[in-house]
Design a protein around this nucleic acid. Structure first.
Lengths: 336, 336
DNA sequence: TTGAAAGCGCTAACAC
DNA sequence: GTGTTAGCGCTTTCAA
């Protein structure tokens, strides 16, 4: 690897001059500048970031921590963040915590040790002692997808989204409401869903709500084990539900497939709606709550820069949009 | 932020001793070690990675360059690499080149400048001058998904996969073959497909083969513009094809949807098969060529460690597997 | 407009 | 066992 010294020698100048050229310092003659540039090109010179960093410059590293990269939702988020980072000349260091708080802690610490300038974080849990430590390190942090007591955050109004789904179900004449949610993650949105249903006279029966236990994460192919028995229970009950809210697209696609295999008609018998509006919802024609992912990415970057300027905490909640598709409305899909 | 000097002063020893304690060097007395540790604790000392790196130590950084993060195929690959990296205590620096050779060059250079220990690379083009420079930098590199003249690589036997698809189409009695491929990327697999078809007496007519031009990348939602007009052409021709190979799942899901919207029956009129077997193929029931993604991830990590030990180039080609689903066989899906 | 030289925080010979 | 010292590659005064 060519160093600044090699370039200086090749161009017949001092390292200081090369440094000036690199940093576009005005006080370098056009002639010299040209000379240095061609030397850099010839040697395929790339400045060593560590050395630059050591002089108090920024590391160019942005840490991104997401639950997993199996769910296309987080991939979309990462794609948006990577694009934003590339745009502003930063690099993204990705880590997945697989919904394990222990991993979460480890990863964030590792990232801080690597000298990240900022952290964009989808935490395992809403709050934790880790947050306080993180705050003390002074690393600019933005929480994404959730709100936080400690950091700026950008999330979606999921409660409102859940209400929209309830309203949609009511609009299409559904009466017996059911849901599938992740315990400890989706409680608020599920609660909003139930309340809205109730306000229209539809009580969500306790035995029509299914919770994925905390331990049951997605496996390497994104499969949730509990879903199988849940579908069994849904189809075997006497008082069947006729509409179902599912916490995300991936789970919904699995449940719909399973319901159909068991002879159920979606949306005929059960209308289904879910969250995220990923590519899965698009190809499977699932009614879903869309989040403005790209906007979230942009805002996350804005928030990390705001951290040091203001002493109050920004919690941005973006509005979501219900995308109605066949899983809750329209043509009935039947297998002949 | 406390530095090693502060710790040394606080503990009443030299910086060298502190360094020894940090690196668990055996020749430090228990007493001194204890002293130093408590000083580190007191000052909340965290070693500065840049300084460590500058001394030629490993950065713990693995660069990963993929075309995009929209196609679930690359997300799966990234997920596998991230998991592997986490397992061996390394961090992944992701970059996407969006199939632009110019980006590719920029990104690889940036990554090298950041002091990556190794690069796992899905290049824009099979070979380029960039490879030679990269080779000269001595960064251990593994090419994934393609083969390379310069670096170890792990890829799939895509030609064999394409042949398998041709054989499958023949098995189910199809006669008029068509394909959609990406120009400059899929030439070899398409060629294998055509040859295999021909060897069974089915010539793939020139006007039944469609190429996505090089410029037409996936947009932010993964949509390929050329696909629209291709579907129009496919459905409007007099001598219609009755089987179609498509270069990947994402494109296939779009084409199938479009064909069905236009009244086409898949697989009744046209059997469709594609590559990658991502979650999209699973939920859409598309016959697809599965790649052993996790194995690829593991092998990529093995290959980067092999680079410096041997002077020959390893090109591992894994075997793929045809997963037959409804898009080419089985129940006909109709909309009522 | 340019060069010499002093560090940034850490490691690793080499002394003692 | 421990300290001294010379860098790693770069930036940045300070002089010239």
């Amino acid at each position: 690897m060519a160093s600044i010294k090699d370039v200086a020698t090749k161009a017949g100048v001092s390292t200081a001059t090369v440094s000036r050229v690199i940093n576009n310092h005005p006080s370098v003659s056009v002639e010299t500048r040209r000379e240095v540039h061609s030397a850099m090109d010839f040697l395929c010179y790339v400045p060593n970031r560590s050395a630059v960093q050591l002089n108090g410059k920024c590391s160019g590293l942005i840490g991104v921590v997401v639950p997993n990269l199996i769910n296309p939702h987080f991939c979309e988020l990462l794609a948006s963040l990577e694009e934003e980072a590339r745009y502003v000349g930063k690099s993204v260091l990705v880590k997945t915590h697989q919904n394990q708080p222990f991993q979460d802690k480890q990863l964030v610490r590792t990232l801080v040790g690597m000298g990240i300038e900022a952290l964009i974080w989808v935490p395992t849990e809403a709050e934790s002692s880790l947050s306080e430590w993180l705050l003390s390190t002074g690393v600019n942090t933005a929480v994404v997808t959730q709100t936080s007591r400690f950091f700026n955050s950008v999330s979606n109004n999921q409660e409102r989204g859940a209400e929209t789904i309830a309203e949609h179900f009511i609009d299409i004449g559904r009466t017996r409401f059911g849901f599938i949610g992740q315990d400890g993650v989706d409680n608020r949105k599920i609660s909003a869903f139930c309340k809205k249903a109730l306000s229209h006279g539809h009580r969500v029966e306790k035995h029509h709500g299914y919770w994925i236990p905390k331990g049951d994460g997605e496996n390497s192919r994104g499969h949730i084990h509990s879903l199988d028995s849940i579908v069994d229970k849904i189809t075997s009950r006497e008082d069947k539900i006729n509409c179902l809210l599912i916490y995300n697209d991936v789970a919904a696609s699995y449940v719909i497939e399973k319901l159909r295999r068991k002879g159920g008609n979606v949306p005929g018998d059960i209308a289904v709606a879910s969250f995220d509006n990923t590519i899965i919802a698009q190809v499977m024609n699932i009614t879903s709550i869309a989040q403005p992912i790209n906007e979230m990415g942009k805002l996350a970057f804005e928030l990390i820069n705001k951290t040091e300027k203001y002493d109050h905490i920004d919690s941005i909640a973006l509005t979501t949009k219900l995308i109605v598709r066949e899983s809750s409305l329209g043509m009935t899909v039947t297998k002949i």
